[in-house]
Design a protein around this nucleic acid. Structure first.
Lengths: 228, 228
DNA sequence: TCAAAAGTGTTCTCAATACACCCATGA
DNA sequence: TCATGGGTGTATTGAGAACACTTTTGA
């Protein structure tokens, strides 16, 4: 690292691995490309980074463009930089994974952008190394879910305990015991029981809860471990 | 992402956060810059990425240059891309953290390169955002150490249990009970007791052990959790 | 009245923690 | 012989895992 003169320069891209949860399934937002390169192929949602923005600025920009959402849970996964990863140009991509709540307002914007949701268990072929990015991101959120309450990012503000359990079952790809799950999640004392019931999935109805961010903050500060 | 025409290009750098363990202390390898920019300042070991190499190629290249080592434990931390992170030029840096064994052969190369080891508890000011990178890396290895056997990357091939304990105490910045530590580490059945003793730190001497990579592999495949 | 999901408690096992003394040896 | 660090065992506590029945209600 001696001088900035005559050093190589790179195109830098971001690709967003956007997860949602719907009908008990973990889903990925995929973009149907209408322009070249890779016209008519499926890809993650991405963009080149502009000189006047950071990588995270760029990912927020395109996330808003494709979903209308701001202030989304989004973290860097890693960079993909193989020399031959993009046969067209030498381009380094920084992959970001995001967790969002799927609701109606998003669905319209998603459609307008020719994007669509796929179940992560049934993904189609994506361009370049995007399938690899998705696999890596899935592994990451599986790890992360064990000790961070990321599940709440994917559920509506109000959710039932069986819904939360179904989400964790989708992430871990295994079934959990409902008694133990309920006992454990309640023991953290970070979800608040509401007076309403959700009756969409049973006649009896299940009580709705909401996540208490303040209590979670305090739990974290106290050094306690959220682990499901 | 419509066309590669007229997109911005960036300098891309790697910066290596290289940790070692010596005299019971966790240490960071720091480079005393002899050339501009930032002549006579301290920095992490870094380089620009070349067009014909990946980010990880670049980090391996400079790690070998500064330590003579190959096949080192090295992982990506994250990218640093603020618009104003380097006042000289618009440059994105991908930080990598590495864990190495400090022994004599390295020390010579390190000196030749005007690099030196600092205890992580007593770090000097480094250029740009390099102190931030180091802080982030320390947090990462503290997390990682809980469920991955990264400790063995920092110790010599043959080590004693008290040495291993001292390393974990340095990473976690707290003391551990020697009976419980020994019991736990032995329960994983991934270290092999040798017939030799190390007498450098006591008259009685402590038995040397070595890490059994094969057994660790099997442990991992069986889904078991290494957690200290 | 019955099908389908929600909700509830107890027992057992095992791992984490706390804690104090003897051992071996070179100086 | 003594100072120094190495090495050992037990009791207690708490969390995780396994497991089956009752409740509610709309169709």
């Amino acid at each position: 690292m001696n001088s900035y003169q005559e050093k190589d320069k790179f195109y830098v891209a971001v690709d967003c691995i956007i997860f949602g949860f719907e009908d008990g399934k973990l889903k990925l937002l995929v973009f149907n490309r209408k322009i070249n390169p890779f016209k008519d192929s499926l890809s993650l949602i991405g963009s080149f980074v502009k000189i006047g923005e950071s990588v995270s600025d760029a990912s927020k920009r395109i996330l808003e463009e494709f979903t209308g959402l701001r202030n989304v849970y989004m973290k860097e996964l890693k960079t993909y930089s193989s020399v031959d990863r993009d046969p067209g140009y030498r381009c380094i991509s920084v992959a970001q994974y995001a967790l969002i709540r799927i609701h109606k307002s998003i669905k319209k914007i998603v459609e307008q952008n020719e994007a669509q949701w796929f179940e992560v268990q049934e993904l189609p072929a994506l361009i370049l190394d995007h399938n690899q990015m998705t696999t890596d991101a899935l592994r990451r959120i599986e790890e992360l879910a064990r000790y961070r309450p990321i599940g709440f990012e994917l559920l509506p503000e109000k959710f039932t305990i069986p819904q939360l359990q179904a989400l964790y079952e989708a992430i871990y790809r295994r079934t959990l015991d409902p008694r133990n799950f309920r006992k454990k999640i309640l023991s953290f004392d970070v979800i608040i029981k509401l007076d309403e019931k959700d009756k969409t999935s049973s006649k009896k109805g299940a009580f709705l809860y909401k996540f208490d961010r303040d209590k979670y903050q305090k739990l974290q500060e106290s050094g306690y471990n959220f682990e499901i």
